[in-house]
Write a protein that binds this DNA or RNA. Structure first.
Lengths: 334, 334
DNA sequence: TTGTATGCGTTATCAA
DNA sequence: TTGATAACGCATACAA
């Protein structure tokens, strides 16, 4: 069994209370006693048992992080940011994956709330149902959303409309006017606001340059996958509306698929057909040609999420919305 | 505040003991009472508090997963496998990253052992020091290593020697005899057994075909990164020993770098210079040309790790070593 | 400066 | 079938 304060108390010849205070560095314990206790603690390899400590304190030191998947490149970079923060000293991170099952979310979030009882919830690309949000509010557990928005809840996100604008504006300034758009599902059960916002930015750039919007140049994809990109290019290719550039707002992986299929059609990416992606994840610099893309500061977003979590826990501040600016990273593909 | 068994007890007019037994479905509580309790529990949205439960049980429901980084593609695929397993029902996963800091590992592993007190430890690409292993053994917390080997500790790994052999043998059968090898650091502080084993497989394939081993064709890299690959190709290129194929045993990302630099030198990958990678991660199918590579069943390894963890916890079985077989996945690059 | 008593939410043991 | 009591490891209020 592990060492407890009782073991130390017995060894040193004081009470558990004294040990408890001494190991936490309480000044009320005299220096000599404190040192004897700490020496014994070291010798017995004592560590406080979080379970006991949390129980008596009525709260845990747990930060719950939830996501449909932790294995997406986006989630991975968020986690890197979260890992990087020193601010969460003394906090433990618990990950909970819903494995993409929407029907599992509510139950998972309730179990976290009532059984795990974390100090805060960080939700990556997952939008808790309104009644769940209400339950968290009642229990005073702050929620920090990443890439989702709920009114009255803290959010970390990047400005998708601006991202859409940046990419489109860049292509237009390169002299392109018939820009194909590959974007995530816009409406329905799986429709995302982020996709819609990127479309907005695309439209705004067109409008600003006096180019009319042609829905024939827009292709929606579901999974943001490489295969989605391959298929998207083919669909775009079959359409009547011609295109002289592609903005793949559905992420770099999909852009890689678009590029792959375009090259198979002997199209020269860049000069002949510029392509811009979205995310700037690990694959952007390594595919051929390397990908010009809208960078989301994902690492920084993860770090902001955890810093905000710590801030919200320690202070009394309620809700904050942090909006990051996307940046266009120019490489070979456009 | 959250509902406790006391609240329910008060409401139903029984004692907390009865509630505790009823919510756990204990048959000793009569059906009518059980139903009244469960009804009240539902109404008050009761969930057992893990902190209290764990304290009295003297153990947690936590599975600790440690790794230098959770953001490597390897770790990501392992986590996908871990996420996918249904076997860990009722278990909570705690991730702990040492952020690549070797000097942080021991302290982290001790804090996990004594303060978190998980039911098992899954260690990805991280080799705990012998004294740490001993402390876990003393506390009866099983360790499951992934891609590391310590005698007397459970391990999930793939046969690296076989992987090295598969790739080299394939290239030789394609008529190549002067095969360059890009491999991880072999000796010293950062030297890895996995790299050495892959080299062994490479040598064995050469030997089997009567080809002499030329150390001039071997380049070691440190980070398994894209940049490593770029540099590795340049170094190989400068050497006196010619090469007519490259086996990049230092992973797909490095292989991508090798390919990038080779193409910049106007070398045609595949026909002129076949290149084989190692891992078969997310980038292998999307780079150009798509990568022929030694597939490690990483997803399956993650799943095996968690299944083994659950098995070791629930049964009395001690130590198991699970060795996966690598497979050569043939694409365009060789 | 140190000790005593109490309780956090739960389960286990034993008694009724 | 249900209840009373104690205990898990720790922290806190209060007493000495």
């Amino acid at each position: 069994m592990a060492t407890t304060i009782k073991d130390i108390a017995r060894l040193v010849g004081v009470t558990p209370t004294t040990v408890s205070m001494a190991v936490r560095g309480d000044k009320r314990i005299s220096l000599p006693t404190r040192e004897r206790v700490l020496k014994a603690a070291r010798e017995l390899n004592y560590r406080p048992n979080y379970t006991g400590r949390n129980l008596v304190k009525g709260k845990t030191n747990i930060l719950a992080v939830v996501s449909p998947f932790f294995s997406s490149l986006f989630a991975v970079d968020i986690m890197r940011g979260i890992e990087s923060s020193a601010g969460a000293e003394g906090m433990r991170m618990n990950q909970f994956s819903s494995r993409g099952l929407r029907e599992k979310e509510a139950e998972m979030l309730r179990e976290i709330l009532y059984s795990v009882r974390p100090r805060a919830l960080i939700s990556i690309s997952l939008k808790p149902a309104p009644e769940i949000v209400e339950e968290y509010r009642k229990e005073n557990i702050p929620i920090i959303l990443i890439e989702e928005v709920i009114s009255g809840v803290s959010t970390i996100k990047t400005d998708n409309k601006k991202g859409g604008f940046l990419a489109t504006d860049y292509l237009i300034k390169k002299g392109r006017t018939r820009i194909g758009l590959v974007v995530g599902k816009l409406v329905g059960e799986l429709g995302g606001e982020n996709a819609s916002e990127r479309l907005e930015g695309y439209k705004e750039a067109l409008f600003m340059h006096g180019i009319s919007f042609n829905p024939e140049r827009v292709v929606e994809v579901l999974h943001y996958s490489f295969e989605d990109g391959i298929e998207a290019f083919s669909r775009l290719h079959k359409r009547d509306a011609e295109f002289d550039a592609i903005f793949c707002a559905a992420g770099d992986m999909t852009a890689a698929g678009v590029i792959r299929r375009a090259r198979e059609n002997s199209i020269k990416i860049g000069g002949e057909l510029p392509i811009v992606g979205y995310d700037d994840n690990i694959i952007a610099p390594i595919i051929t040609p390397s990908l010009t893309t809208v960078r989301q500061p994902v690492f920084e977003m993860g770090r902001a999420a955890i810093d905000l979590a710590v801030e919200v826990i320690t202070s009394r501040e309620k809700v904050r919305v942090i909006n990051f600016d996307p940046v266009l990273v120019i490489r070979e593909s456009a």
